[in-house]
Amino acid sequence: MSDTSADNIVNEAQFGDYFALLKPRVMTLVVFTAFVGLLAAPVSVHPFVGFTAILFIALGGGASGALNMWYDADIDAIMRRTQKRPIPAGKVTADEAKALGIALSGVSVLMLGLAANWFAAAFLAFTIFFYVVIYTMWLKRWTPQNIVIGGAAGAFPPMIGWAAATGGVSIESVLMFALIFLWTPPHFWALALFMRNDYDNAKVPMLTVTHGRRATRAHIFWYTVVLAIFAMAAGFTSLGGPVYLSVAAILNVQFLIGAFRIWRRDEDASEADNFAEERKFFKMSLAYLFLHFGAILVEAGLDRFGVWA
């Protein structure tokens, strides 16, 4: 939007380029999980207030995405997966992304506070700070546990949704946090196993590089074991019920089998079938998270209509 860009006809940024700075695919996950957190809460919220709260939680997530793209523009230009993002593609300048990210952070926190409550707003502000400063600026390039810490930022939205309705935190919202927090490392480490060159080239200290691929396979398995315990535990709180427990039991058994297979495999076997097992596990992980939160949503709906009462 600067004056010097007026003559830059070839790489003129369109509205969609600014929207892409907000990482819309990540925002859909934020919208979905925050929505589930809001609806699963035992306090009912006016639909319009609920809609506004979800919208600004998503916008806060988008703002942190823009700030992440501003700070990580150098490594985004190296990794194949991120080369087409608006800054490395030359559509938007890093300063524009920073300005957009800061402005939207302020707007989203303020509007969530006005729409819902100031506890939820403070929680959103902390999440943005955590993702941008603690994860992106500090730990991502420094520790191989980067994925674990980054996962925490992605795990806050259902807690914020819950807080928007109740004004606080409870065991249920902590368990929803744990579900995403513990799911993130196996999900991304499986990706790192079959997309290895990207992270190596960008010198991001992924576990595959710092501790080796065998250790990564073991980490995937043990994180999945802990994840399964927390996922099943959630079924025995007010989040759960017969639907959730049935879905969680099937998914966790499948996920554990997949993680166990990855753990027991060696590199030769993986190379031979072009990481088929790791790719399958990665795909399954997407369904795993979606179906768990879907089941919580179904339970909340059934509860609201008095089916289990």
Partner: peptide, 13 residues
Amino acid sequence: EIHKRRFSRNMGL
């Protein structure tokens, strides 16, 4: 010509 070129982002905003 700049008005045409920037139509999408002006309209979006």
